[in-house]
Design a protein around this nucleic acid. Structure first.
Lengths: 147, 147
DNA sequence: ATAATTTATTTCGAATTCGAGATAATGAAA
DNA sequence: TTTCATTATCTCGAATTCGAAATAAATTAT
């Protein structure tokens, strides 16, 4: 059962990591669908909600999405009335995405629920374990990114 | 910087988990593309390589994919000649996917390289840390799935 | 000042995934 | 046995994502 050498251990880590995140995101998706959004729309909306207006291009960095995909998501959120585009006055290449009143109202309503849901989903570990896990994941992730 | 209550800690855990896995999978994808496969194709091929022939439906469970998606991936691998379909003699609803000689040869060649790559990518933690991380992720994931 | 390069966004087509429904076979119930 | 429900696979259309190329504006270099 246990990995008998470091390579197998690394592979096992990758598999367990993938499956753990899959279990979690599958539940989180259920929560988000209940708000009439998909996970990407929610992520973009949340970014604007918490960090204020953003150049469209910067959204991609934070939400881990290609710029062409951002265009698509921003279009959808705009059609739903939750955000709007706003041209940058100093650089005409740039377009900001800004959350609307409707978007604000929605997020005021659903974000607390969303946090509760995530907390419930992550209740398999206690506070200290979560802190430890976060540190280890940061270490793992930063190293992987640096290669 | 640090989360000041449990809900924020859970949210942070989710974000860090997502980003860590993203950093890792992005590197693993690079590795797999180098073998002329995409990650899903590789996962299916690896399953058949290590676990032997599988009913198409069971592949979906292990690779976390809907049955209609499995059909698509199996079609592609079959066209590439790495696997073939084999009807089940006792249950005519069932079709097995079986790795071919060509698929075997490919995996004999690339799987060791793939394990090396994963090990390099995961080298940010030592063996004990990996073991600990695995246990915590299992605990987290199993709980999330059970909700 | 003009040209060349870089940057931001969008368009377009392709790849991947899903869910709902179709088809066919098996198993259970009457 | 005939019917009903379940199971396995596939088809189809829609959603999402990407990468390459197009467009347009800003910046840098000559």
């Amino acid at each position: 059962m246990g990995a008998d050498n470091e390579k197998e251990l690394s592979l096992k880590l990758f598999v367990v990591l993938t499956r753990a995140l899959d279990s979690i995101t599958s539940k989180i998706k259920d929560d988000i669908r209940g708000y009439g959004l998909n996970p990407t729309e929610f992520a973009v909306l949340e970014l604007l909600y918490h960090k204020g207006e953003q150049p469209i291009q910067k959204i991609g960095d934070k939400v881990l999405l290609a710029s062409s995909s951002i265009t698509y998501v921003v279009d959808k959120l705009e059609k739903k009335g939750y955000i709007k585009r706003k041209p940058c006055p100093t650089d005409r290449r740039v377009t900001y995405a800004v959350i609307t009143e409707l978007g604000q109202t929605l997020m005021d309503e659903i974000f607390p629920k969303h946090m509760d849901a995530i907390n419930d989903i992550c209740a398999g570990l206690n506070v200290d374990e979560k802190k430890l896990l976060i540190e280890m994941l940061k270490k793992l992730g930063l190293f992987a990114k640096s290669i």
